[in-house]
């Protein structure tokens, strides 16, 4: 029993958006991270279509479980516990993962944890950089989320500090990429285009940075509109659009605000560690600027490698493993999926 509690073998499921993720961890050791993405099916629509994502989850589910087991070199009989994203996310997509995880738990007679997607994004860093320091600040930035969180205990005490009041940071990347005709998803494409550009070429607005604005909330909708106006003005005048400069200046506006507020959140909460997760954490300029500003402020930055930043099943397994080790009660088989689950609810019972 002690061995099980110290390093449980946990199977994790993630289907909150367009990635079917199945991960396997033993304690804090990553054994498998199998992901099937439907992103190519969404590209022509310029964004994730929920029904297309849900259909793809159903088809990918069992093959992805089998791939994860083969990668980890374990069998279902070895699994000690199961964890699955209960929310937040796309309602129909979440249900596919939850139903699959419940079926595996029921068949194997193992405990199941319905967990919070955002807490999983935080906990995944334990697989790479070891146990989380007590009381760190986490910044989660993706196509669906932009949140600053204070994390005394990832298994039960996650406190929201601020979030976007309109678009998520990743959403802004997608929309601006569309304005620039770069394609979908926009994050990596803008990152690449920006490398050749001047981040100070155009002074795009920094949302919610005025003296009366909420200091830890974000807004990216105005920035997106501002970029579109700038581009349209030049198009009307028949001028060539300096793609690299627009991409670099837009990207700088986003990461400037993100890092500035993240450092402020650390200072206000006495945290000496900043953890960054979510798909936008793969952005090269965000990593550089966060490191630069954190170092100046005496704060250590932790960012998992890119494929653990984007949605995956290993992060859910990592949180499940931590919940087992801390002796937290599992969920009941009838736990609901919740598309708007609050970050304070780490486990749904």
């Amino acid at each position: 029993m002690t061995a099980l509690k110290d390093s449980p073998l946990v199977l994790g499921f993630e289907t909150s958006c367009d990635e079917t993720g199945v991960g396997i961890v033993r304690g804090n050791t990553l054994l498998a991270d199998a992901v099937a993405s439907s992103v190519d099916e969404h590209a022509r629509f310029g964004g994730v279509v929920p029904e297309v994502a849900s259909r793809a989850h159903l088809e990918a589910m069992v093959p992805t479980v089998q791939r994860a087991l083969a990668d980890a070199g374990v069998t279902l009989a070895d699994i000690d516990a199961i964890a699955v994203t209960a929310g937040p996310g796309l309602a129909g997509a979440l249900l596919v993962g939850a139903a699959a995880a419940k079926a595996y738990a029921l068949a194997l007679d193992k405990p199941i944890y319905g967990v919070n997607h955002l807490a999983a994004h935080i906990c995944v860093d334990q697989l790479e950089h070891g146990p989380l320091p007590e009381g760190c600040v986490a910044m989660l930035v993706s196509g669906g989320h932009s949140s600053l969180l204070f994390v005394p205990d990832v298994t039960g005490d996650v406190q929201p500090l601020g979030q976007t009041i309109d678009d998520a940071a990743g959403e802004a990347f997608d929309k601006v990429a569309r304005v620039l005709g770069l394609g979908f998803p926009g994050g990596p494409l803008i990152d690449k285009a920006a490398r050749e550009g001047d981040p100070e070429a155009i002074a795009f607005p920094r949302g919610l940075t005025g003296p009366r604005d909420a200091p830890l909330d974000f807004s990216f909708s105005g920035l997106k509109t501002s970029v579109a106006r700038w581009v349209e003005r030049r198009e009307r005048a028949g001028e060539k659009i300096p793609l690299a400069d627009v991409a670099a200046s837009f990207q700088e506006a986003v990461v400037d605000v993100l890092t500035r507020k993240a450092i402020l959140a650390c200072k206000e909460n006495g945290a000496d560690h900043l953890l960054i997760g979510g798909g936008v954490a793969a952005n090269s300029r965000l990593r550089v600027l966060a490191e630069e500003r954190a170092t100046k402020a005496g704060i250590r930055v932790r960012v998992p490698r890119p494929n653990l930043c984007t949605d995956n099943g290993a992060m859910v397994a990592a949180l499940g493993s931590e919940l087992v080790r801390r002796g937290r009660a599992p969920s009941h088989l009838d736990f609901p999926s919740d598309s708007s689950q609050s970050v304070v609810d780490v486990v749904v019972r």
Partner: peptide
């Protein structure tokens, strides 16, 4: 949505 819950449950049980 409801249909998929049944189908993924069946497939997962069959696999497990």
């Amino acid at each position: 949505t409801g249909l998929r819950v049944g189908l993924v449950t069946a497939r997962a049980l069959g696999d497990a």
